[in-house]
Each structure stands twice: as structure tokens, then as C-alpha cells.
Write a protein that binds this DNA or RNA. Structure first.
Lengths: 202, 202
DNA sequence: ACCTGAACACCGTTCAAGT
DNA sequence: ACCTGAACACCGTTCAAGT
């Protein structure tokens, strides 16, 4: 109703800002995919000269990194909450998944390049805390955590890029249910697989 | 000694062929990465006009798919062999890993796009067979197999793109040993996690 | 300080023309 | 049949110039 031709942000002369650029880039990515994002198209969406972007963003790589950072730090809402370590791990995995599903096109890129899960990032710290509380020996927490994060990341990537859908029987009618089930299976396997590594205390 | 400027293949007038194009593309990818592969550079490496490629390959996407297929069907050497299902699964995982490590730059791309692991492909069939023989209920074989493939794929991607290296303590001196250990941890977790899903027979 | 136009060195791909 | 040159519609980015 507002702007038909100029996408959703006709912010003509509103003064360019780094955050504004990231926001516009994100909606472009969500709509058309990362491969469709170009500095020139982004500038056009913002109603600005392509070169103006370079005053706020170093280059395209930095732009993509910035957008990813913006989205990933948005997941602050991780509820560590109580429950058994199993429940907490399951909860964390779900958070990770819904975060991936919020911006699947971006995730296709983000999972590919390293640095999605940051050391000292929220996901990482939460994961390590849960593993420690579960009774995993201290020296195993980081290596096992890294492995778990990579495994789950891979699963989410397969879900997001359709590889999982292609592997599971293609005749499935309810795709969403099938991939949700896949996710549950994965988390169950990982939790059960963790069990023997924990200390004697349950 | 032979050709210094023209890369390794100075195949001037040897008549262009689909296989030759794939081979040249693969060495280019192995050397400089997928993002450095362009139709024009590839043509230059072959000593040929860029447009000539289009007589043997539909477009760049088909080229990449072809190179991936070429490499992936090269892993025929999967030794199903005997041993417990645990050993066989471990063996299969290692095959998958060494295949990823043979062409890491290509894998960065291949893991990202769906279709690396094909239904009815060798890896997939071997995986399903092992799971069946392990005693996994028949209706679980495909969903669990899809999940395992995605999980391991994610781990290998993290290894290949450096995400894993970044997550595990960056002060590690022997990086290869650390990522090899990560892989062993992952496979152990997956095998242990599979255990409770198997039938009563061991 | 912020923005811009012109320009450079690239892309993938189409198409009509050559042999 | 196979190859090519010119051309089209794009890229990211630099740089000197404008306000």
C-alpha cells in the first residue's frame, strides 16, 4: 500500500546509517537470497548511489558479516532456565533451530562461512554451561561443545537448503512435520550419545 | 618445467571434452577455491575461448554439479567389509571424511548445496545397510540415516571451513590432531546415541 | 563529513557468424 | 559439429571531484 515499486523502505533522504544498511540488506536477503544481494541492488533499494554504501561499510564481505552479527546477537532471548541438562540442551537446540528458520536464506550463507558460532558468544557459553552442569569432565567441555555445535549446525543447514528433505522419503506429504521429526531424532541421538561421557553422578 | 604461465594443462588443440573441462575445473578449484572459478578463467586455463565451454557444459551451475558428481562417484572404494556395525559405521564416516579432505575447497561448496549425498548414492546405500544390519527398525532406517548424514556433513563442513578450529581452543599447537580428535568424539557420540534405538538383539 | 559520476577490471551468457 | 567475437547486462571497488 505504501511503496509498491521501491520495496518496503523508501527512505530517500533519511541519511544513510550502518544499521539502516544492514536492515535493508537483511530484508533483501530474506526476500531473494544471499546470492541476489549486490551492493548496487542494495543501494537502489535504499534510493542511494552504490558508492555511498562504502562510507558506512568496508565492503561486501563486511556487510554480510555485519548482517549476520546483527541477526545472531538478536538471539539474546536464550532462556537458560531450569530442568535437567537434557531439557536444557533440547531447549538450546530448539533456540538454535528457530533462529535458523527466522532467516533461512541468510543461514545458508552463515553456516557455510566460519564464525557463526562465536567463542564467547551466547550460544557457545550456554552450551558449555549446560555440558558442565551435566557432569561432563571439565577438559571435555570445549571439544565436545565444538563438536555438538558443528553437528547441529550441519543438520540445520541441511534443513535450510533442502538436503534433508531430499534424503528423507520424497513422497512425504507433510514436509514440516518430517523435518521437525528429523530434528527431534537428532537431538535424541546426541543426548543419548552424551550420556556415557558424563561423570558417575547422573 | 613444462608450462609455467599456462598452469598445468597446456592442452591447446587437444579437442575440448566434458571430462577435460571438469578435470581442469577441479584443479582450479583445488588450487584457488570455488569462488575463484570463472568460466573465463577456466577457458584461459584450457587455452580456449570462454564460449567454447558452453558447447560441452550447460552453464556454470551445471559445471559445478558435474565436478561434484565426478568427485563423489570417485569414492566407489567404500569397503563395506565385515566387523560390528560400530566398526562399519566408523569406517564409513572415515571414508566420508577423507573424501572431504581430498578436495576441501570443493566441499565448501558441495556441503552447502543440497544433493551431495544422493538417495541411491553409494554413501547412502552403505549407511542404510549398516543401520539395518545393526538392528534399527526398518521404518527408522531412512529418517535416522538422513539425520546422521546431515550431522556428519555439518561436522566435516566445520572442519573444512575452519569453524571447528576456531571453536576449539585456538591455542592448540597440533591442529590436525585436534580436528581428528573432534571427528572421533563425534562418531563416538553418534554411535552411542544410536544404541538405544536398536532392537533388542545387540 | 558525506555523497557522487566516471571508470576499471571483472563476471555469466546470448547470438549471429565463421570453419 | 564445433568454435569464436562482439555484445549485453550485470558485478565489486577505486578515485577524484563535488557539497
Amino acid at each position: 500500500m505504501a511503496g509498491d515499486k521501491k520495496a518496503s523502505t523508501p527512505r530517500r533522504d533519511v541519511r544513510l546509517t550502518e544499521a539502516g544498511i544492514y536492515a535493508a540488506a537483511l530484508t533483501l536477503i530474506d526476500t531473494e537470497g544471499v546470492e541476489a544481494l549486490s551492493m548496487r541492488k542494495l543501494a537502489a533499494a535504499l534510493g542511494v548511489n552504490p558508492m555511498s554504501l562504502y562510507h558506512h561499510v568496508e565492503n561486501k564481505a563486511a556487510l554480510l558479516a555485519g548482517v549476520t552479527r546483527l541477526v545472531v546477537t538478536d538471539v539474546q532471548s536464550l532462556t537458560p532456565s531450569g530442568g535437567t541438562w537434557r531439557d536444557q540442551l533440547r531447549h538450546l537446540a530448539r533456540d538454535f533451530r528457530s533462529f535458523a528458520q527466522a532467516h533461512p536464506r541468510l543461514m545458508e550463507y552463515a553456516f557455510t562461512s566460519p564464525g557463526l558460532i562465536q567463542r564467547h558468544g551466547i550460544l557457545w557459553l550456554a552450551l558449555c554451561r549446560i555440558l558442565t552442569e551435566a557432569g561432563l569432565p571439565a577438559e571435555d567441555v570445549e571439544p565436545v561443545g565444538a563438536v555438538l555445535a558443528s553437528l547441529v549446525g550441519g543438520l540445520l543447514l541441511s534443513e535450510v537448503n533442502g538436503a534433508l528433505r531430499r534424503l528423507v522419503d520424497p513422497a512425504t506429504e507433510d514436509v514440516d512435520a518430517a523435518t521437525a521429526r528429523s530434528f527431534d531424532i537428532a537431538v535424541d541421538i546426541l543426548i543419548a550419545g552424551l550420556e556415557p561421557r558424563l561423570g558417575l553422578r547422573r
